[in-house]
Simulated assay, not measured.
Amino acid sequence: MGTPESDSTQLEVVRVFTDTAGRFGNPLGIARAADVTGVDHQALAARAGYSETVVVEEPAADRATVRIYTPAVELPFAGHPTVGTAWWLAMLGKPVAVLDVPAGPVEVSPLTDGVTWIRARYEWAPKFEFHEFSDLAELATLDPADFPEGQHYAWGWNDEARGTVRTRMFAPAMGIAEDEATGAAAIALTAQLQRGVYITQGQGSQLYTEWDSDGWVRLGGRVIADHPVVI
């Protein structure tokens, strides 16, 4: 898989879709493109071990180009990497209006009440097999071993009238046994339901969605900085 090791590449790490107290959230590794010239990005993501690692070009004209990697594959689009990257760039004083990913232009809204919002097409999301559970206690008993292959999003209503949902995601095909918070799956579920939802996933991560129109979905969440790592 190309270069087996890098020369002490530093990744910035943020946690995406935390709760209001800054707990939980899905770690995202962020590499500046200039720092990983000549490095195998896929091998880098595999060593990092996060559900996704991104390589970000220097912003220009309110846009930045981003490539997204799981430990096993490159993705044309994913939610937690785009929300996390948008927040990270804003914190660097380099806010962008668009993140260009292979799937297309992801629109970024200014930070609102501590929440970073992006807007994307639902068909950009990876294909998931959806499993609806009427009993959330049963949902809680699921184990990654129950899903030896494929990409699965298990969900159930916590309160359908209020649009609150409990979810879990398992994607061995992406090299992810279980994901703490999955923005692309949240977008796909929102499109399926054609309504915005408030999702609690994993240990307690929180995701917000809004159904827009013509296949567009807004995805939002809170992000905080974690410690950088060298791999």
Rank of each mutant, 00 (worst) to 15 (best):
P144N: 12
E58Q: 11
L193H: 14
A97F: 05
A21D: 15
G150A: 11
A125M: 12
A43K: 07
T3R: 08
A186L: 07
V98S: 04
E58R: 13
E123Q: 15
D214M: 05
L28M: 14
R218Y: 07
P4A: 00
P102D: 14
H80M: 06
A171N: 03
G38H: 12
M1E: 12
T112A: 09
R67P: 11
R23V: 03
W211K: 02
V101T: 12
P228A: 05
G150S: 02
T9R: 00
F170R: 03
P95Y: 01
R168S: 09
E5M: 04
D19M: 10
W117Y: 05
L142D: 08
A177K: 12
A120E: 00
E57T: 11
T116F: 00
R15H: 15
H152I: 11
W211R: 02
E57G: 06
V217N: 02
G175Q: 03
Q42M: 11
G38A: 09
G196K: 12
I118S: 13
W157M: 08
G215N: 11
L99A: 06
V73S: 08
Y122M: 14
G163N: 13
A140I: 04
E74I: 01
V16E: 02
L193N: 10
V54C: 04
G49P: 00
G183K: 00
Q10N: 13
A21T: 14
T116Y: 01
V101N: 03
V55F: 07
R168Q: 14
V98F: 06
D35C: 11
W157K: 10
T141D: 15
E138C: 12
P148R: 05
W117F: 06
L207V: 10
V217K: 01
A120M: 13
V230G: 14
V56S: 07
R119Y: 03
I224D: 15
F77H: 06
L75P: 13
S8Y: 11
W155D: 03
V197I: 12
F128N: 10
G202H: 09
P81T: 01
D113Q: 10
A185G: 15
T18C: 15
A177Q: 15
P105E: 06
D214C: 10
V16A: 13
G183S: 07
R162K: 00
Q151T: 14
Y122T: 11
Q42K: 09
G2Q: 13
P27K: 11
Q206P: 01
P228M: 01
A45Q: 01
V101R: 00
P105V: 02
A78P: 08
